[in-house]
């Protein structure tokens, strides 16, 4: 009898232990599943966020590239003989137009512009600054105030005289 009672008690304890084990396993599995869902959700939204940032950066590169081309074009147009003639006639209406391109106009293109663009992009590669702006830096024609001071005109006149 004693043995049977002992066995019954042991079995009850085992059942209880098994149930706790089951609960524990279920809890662990639930935690794992929930954690998995949570992490995958986080990954999903993170990748979504990175995609958006990536796209913004790509657009930024495109815009910078466009701006770089525009600036190169503006510089070349400003250096072109026709534009120089117009500038001279605007600044010194009485002076005759130059007959040759200034030597500086035929210097090979320096690569500094490229470096600046690369830097501008790399600085924003960390993804923290999602928004950006391009500063339009095209050459601006001398304003009236500059013309009034006659500094550029004097400089050009001096160069021509030399």
């Amino acid at each position: 009898m004693a043995t049977r009672r002992k066995t019954t008690t042991t079995r009850g304890t085992e059942i209880l232990n098994d149930r706790w084990k089951l609960y524990l396993v279920m809890a662990i599995i639930s935690v794992v599943i929930v954690a998995g869902f949570f992490l995958s959700g986080k990954q999903h939204f993170s990748s979504w966020d990175f995609s958006i940032r990536n796209n913004k950066l790509r657009k930024q590169i495109d815009d910078l590239e466009t701006e770089k081309r525009r600036l190169i074009l503006a510089r070349e147009t400003a250096n072109s003989p026709n534009e120089l003639k117009r500038a001279v006639s605007r600044l010194m209406p009485t002076a005759s137009a130059p007959t040759a391109v200034p030597a500086s106009a035929v210097k090979p293109i320096e690569k500094t512009a490229d470096k600046n663009v690369e830097l501008a992009v790399s600085k924003k590669d960390d993804g923290k600054t999602a928004s950006y702006s391009i500063v339009k830096t095209a050459m601006v024609m001398p304003t009236k105030s500059v013309a009034k001071s006659e500094k550029p005109a004097r400089t050009i006149a001096k160069n021509l005289a030399e």
Binding site: T66, R69, L73, V106, K107
Partner: peptide
């Protein structure tokens, strides 16, 4: 795609496309 650029012998753009 942007049309290719024509340069002179010193690398100055003679014809260039912009967006």
């Amino acid at each position: 795609l942007l049309r290719g650029t024509i340069y002179d012998r010193d690398g100055r753009p003679l014809a260039m496309s912009i967006k």
